[in-house]
Protein backbone atom coordinates (compact mmCIF):
# COMPACT_ATOMS: atom_id res chain seq x y z
CA UNK A 1 0.00 0.00 0.00
CA UNK A 2 1.17 3.51 -0.74
CA UNK A 3 0.00 5.85 1.99
CA UNK A 4 -0.54 9.62 1.93
CA UNK A 5 2.94 10.27 3.36
CA UNK A 6 4.58 8.33 0.53
CA UNK A 7 2.63 10.30 -2.06
CA UNK A 8 3.60 13.66 -0.50
CA UNK A 9 7.27 12.75 -0.32
CA UNK A 10 7.13 11.50 -3.91
CA UNK A 11 5.71 14.86 -5.03
CA UNK A 12 8.35 16.66 -2.99
CA UNK A 13 11.20 14.64 -4.44
CA UNK A 14 9.72 15.09 -7.93
CA UNK A 15 9.62 18.84 -7.37
CA UNK A 16 13.19 18.86 -6.05
CA UNK A 17 14.50 16.70 -8.87
CA UNK A 18 12.71 18.49 -11.69
CA UNK A 19 12.78 22.07 -10.37
CA UNK A 20 14.47 23.57 -13.51
CA UNK A 21 12.05 21.65 -15.76
CA UNK A 22 9.03 22.85 -13.78
CA UNK A 23 10.40 26.40 -13.96
CA UNK A 24 10.86 25.98 -17.73
CA UNK A 25 7.25 24.81 -18.21
CA UNK A 26 5.87 27.65 -16.06
CA UNK A 27 7.85 30.43 -17.79
CA UNK A 28 7.13 28.90 -21.20
CA UNK A 29 3.36 28.68 -20.51
CA UNK A 30 3.16 32.26 -19.19
CA UNK A 31 5.11 33.61 -22.17
CA UNK A 32 2.92 31.64 -24.56
CA UNK A 33 -0.26 32.98 -22.96
CA UNK A 34 0.95 36.59 -22.98
CA UNK A 35 2.23 36.48 -26.56
CA UNK A 36 -0.98 34.77 -27.69
CA UNK A 37 -2.97 37.70 -26.26
CA UNK A 38 -0.57 40.12 -27.97
CA UNK A 39 -0.70 38.62 -31.46
CA UNK A 40 -4.49 38.35 -31.35
CA UNK A 41 -4.75 42.02 -30.40
CA UNK A 42 -6.01 43.99 -33.42
CA UNK A 43 -3.57 46.90 -33.00
CA UNK A 44 -0.56 44.56 -32.75
CA UNK A 45 -1.88 42.44 -35.64
CA UNK A 46 -2.25 45.51 -37.90
CA UNK A 47 0.88 47.41 -36.90
CA UNK A 48 3.41 44.60 -36.30
CA UNK A 49 2.23 41.26 -37.72
CA UNK A 50 0.85 42.56 -41.02
CA UNK A 51 4.07 44.37 -42.05
CA UNK A 52 6.02 41.15 -41.31
CA UNK A 53 3.53 39.21 -43.47
CA UNK A 54 3.89 41.73 -46.30
CA UNK A 55 7.71 41.58 -46.07
CA UNK A 56 7.64 37.78 -46.26
CA UNK A 57 5.25 37.94 -49.25
CA UNK A 58 7.63 40.37 -50.94
CA UNK A 59 10.61 38.03 -50.51
CA UNK A 60 8.57 35.04 -51.73
CA UNK A 61 7.48 37.05 -54.79
CA UNK A 62 11.09 38.01 -55.59
CA UNK A 63 12.29 34.41 -55.39
CA UNK A 64 9.36 33.11 -57.46
CA UNK A 65 10.05 35.72 -60.17
CA UNK A 66 13.74 34.80 -60.31
CA UNK A 67 15.06 33.03 -63.45
CA UNK A 68 15.64 29.83 -61.43
CA UNK A 69 12.01 29.24 -60.39
CA UNK A 70 10.31 31.04 -63.30
CA UNK A 71 6.91 31.49 -61.68
CA UNK A 72 5.91 35.01 -62.75
CA UNK A 73 3.77 36.78 -60.20
CA UNK A 74 2.83 40.17 -58.84
CA UNK A 75 2.77 41.05 -55.15
CA UNK A 76 -0.02 43.22 -53.77
CA UNK A 77 0.26 43.64 -50.01
CA UNK A 78 0.04 40.16 -48.55
CA UNK A 79 -1.33 38.60 -51.76
CA UNK A 80 0.66 36.83 -54.48
CA UNK A 81 -1.07 37.03 -57.86
CA UNK A 82 0.00 34.77 -60.71
CA UNK A 83 0.70 36.55 -64.03
CA UNK A 84 1.26 35.49 -67.68
CA UNK A 85 -1.72 33.12 -67.79
CA UNK A 86 -1.47 31.82 -64.23
CA UNK A 87 -4.84 32.48 -62.53
CA UNK A 88 -3.65 31.36 -59.08
CA UNK A 89 -3.81 33.88 -56.21
CA UNK A 90 -2.48 33.19 -52.74
CA UNK A 91 -3.17 35.29 -49.67
CA UNK A 92 -0.56 35.03 -46.93
CA UNK A 93 -2.54 35.40 -43.74
CA UNK A 94 -1.32 36.44 -40.31
CA UNK A 95 -1.02 32.83 -39.14
CA UNK A 96 0.91 31.77 -42.28
CA UNK A 97 3.91 34.03 -41.72
CA UNK A 98 5.70 31.88 -39.18
CA UNK A 99 5.21 34.42 -36.40
CA UNK A 100 3.17 32.06 -34.21
CA UNK A 101 5.71 29.27 -34.57
CA UNK A 102 8.64 31.60 -33.92
CA UNK A 103 6.89 32.81 -30.76
CA UNK A 104 6.92 29.23 -29.47
CA UNK A 105 10.59 28.92 -30.45
CA UNK A 106 11.51 32.18 -28.69
CA UNK A 107 9.41 31.34 -25.62
CA UNK A 108 11.23 28.00 -25.32
CA UNK A 109 14.61 29.73 -25.56
CA UNK A 110 13.70 32.42 -23.04
CA UNK A 111 12.42 29.76 -20.64
CA UNK A 112 15.51 27.55 -20.87
CA UNK A 113 17.81 28.14 -17.86
CA UNK A 114 20.98 29.22 -19.71
CA UNK A 115 22.73 32.63 -19.51
CA UNK A 116 21.67 35.03 -22.27
CA UNK A 117 25.23 35.64 -23.52
CA UNK A 118 25.38 31.91 -24.39
CA UNK A 119 22.02 31.50 -26.01
CA UNK A 120 21.48 34.80 -27.85
CA UNK A 121 23.63 33.79 -30.85
CA UNK A 122 21.87 30.46 -31.22
CA UNK A 123 18.47 32.13 -30.86
CA UNK A 124 19.38 34.45 -33.76
CA UNK A 125 20.65 31.57 -35.93
CA UNK A 126 17.59 29.44 -35.15
CA UNK A 127 15.25 32.34 -35.86
CA UNK A 128 16.90 33.01 -39.23
CA UNK A 129 16.82 29.32 -40.20
CA UNK A 130 13.23 29.07 -39.17
CA UNK A 131 12.15 32.02 -41.33
CA UNK A 132 14.10 30.64 -44.28
CA UNK A 133 12.10 27.42 -43.98
CA UNK A 134 8.91 29.45 -43.80
CA UNK A 135 9.88 31.28 -47.02
CA UNK A 136 10.43 27.88 -48.65
CA UNK A 137 6.94 26.95 -47.48
CA UNK A 138 5.33 30.05 -49.06
CA UNK A 139 7.24 29.58 -52.32
CA UNK A 140 6.43 25.87 -52.60
CA UNK A 141 2.75 26.49 -51.79
CA UNK A 142 2.52 29.01 -54.64
CA UNK A 143 4.14 26.54 -57.04
CA UNK A 144 1.85 23.69 -55.88
CA UNK A 145 -1.23 25.92 -56.06
CA UNK A 146 -0.31 27.04 -59.59
CA UNK A 147 0.30 23.59 -61.03
CA UNK A 148 -1.50 20.95 -58.99
CA UNK A 149 -4.99 20.12 -57.75
CA UNK A 150 -6.77 21.89 -54.91
CA UNK A 151 -6.58 18.70 -52.77
CA UNK A 152 -2.80 18.58 -53.16
CA UNK A 153 -2.55 22.24 -52.14
CA UNK A 154 -4.79 21.61 -49.08
CA UNK A 155 -2.68 18.61 -48.01
CA UNK A 156 0.57 20.57 -48.28
CA UNK A 157 -0.95 23.64 -46.65
CA UNK A 158 -2.79 21.98 -43.75
CA UNK A 159 -0.64 18.98 -42.99
CA UNK A 160 2.74 18.70 -44.66
CA UNK A 161 4.14 22.17 -44.09
CA UNK A 162 2.59 22.63 -40.69
CA UNK A 163 4.07 19.33 -39.53
CA UNK A 164 7.38 20.13 -41.21
CA UNK A 165 7.57 23.54 -39.51
CA UNK A 166 6.86 22.02 -36.10
CA UNK A 167 9.53 19.35 -36.59
CA UNK A 168 12.03 21.86 -37.99
CA UNK A 169 11.40 24.17 -35.00
CA UNK A 170 11.85 21.26 -32.59
CA UNK A 171 15.00 20.16 -34.44
CA UNK A 172 16.48 23.67 -34.44
CA UNK A 173 15.63 24.11 -30.76
CA UNK A 174 17.19 20.77 -29.80
CA UNK A 175 20.28 21.47 -31.91
CA UNK A 176 20.78 24.95 -30.45
CA UNK A 177 20.07 23.73 -26.90
CA UNK A 178 22.59 20.93 -27.44
CA UNK A 179 25.25 23.36 -28.68
CA UNK A 180 24.69 25.71 -25.73
CA UNK A 181 24.70 22.96 -23.07
CA UNK A 182 27.69 21.25 -24.74
CA UNK A 183 29.75 24.45 -24.45
CA UNK A 184 28.68 24.79 -20.83
CA UNK A 185 29.94 21.24 -20.13
CA UNK A 186 33.26 21.98 -21.92
CA UNK A 187 33.67 25.20 -19.88
CA UNK A 188 32.92 23.33 -16.64
CA UNK A 189 35.52 20.68 -17.54
CA UNK A 190 38.14 23.38 -18.27
CA UNK A 191 37.39 25.00 -14.91
CA UNK A 192 37.77 21.66 -13.13
CA UNK A 193 41.12 21.04 -14.86
CA UNK A 194 42.47 24.47 -13.98
CA UNK A 195 41.57 24.12 -10.27
Amino acid sequence: MIDQKDNTSRFKSFHRKYRPEIKFVLIFSILLGVSFKLVYNKTVADSVILPITIAETYVASLVLNSPILKHPNRQKGNVLIGTKGNPFRMEVRNNCNGVYESIVFLAAFIAIQIPWRRKIGWVAIGFLLFHMVNEMRLISLFIIGSGYSHETFVFFHETFWQYALVIVTLGIFLFCAHQVSKHQVIDANKLEEST
Binding site: G171, L174, F175, A177, H178, S181, K182, Q184, V185, A188
Partner: peptide, 12 residues
Protein backbone atom coordinates in the same frame (compact mmCIF):
# COMPACT_ATOMS: atom_id res chain seq x y z
CA UNK B 1 24.17 20.20 -18.06
CA UNK B 2 26.04 17.06 -19.06
CA UNK B 3 22.80 15.05 -18.99
CA UNK B 4 20.99 17.76 -20.95
CA UNK B 5 23.72 17.86 -23.59
CA UNK B 6 23.50 14.07 -23.94
CA UNK B 7 19.68 13.98 -23.92
CA UNK B 8 19.23 16.74 -26.53
CA UNK B 9 21.72 14.93 -28.80
CA UNK B 10 19.98 11.56 -28.37
CA UNK B 11 16.51 12.99 -29.01
CA UNK B 12 17.75 14.89 -32.05
Amino acid sequence: DREYAALSRVIL
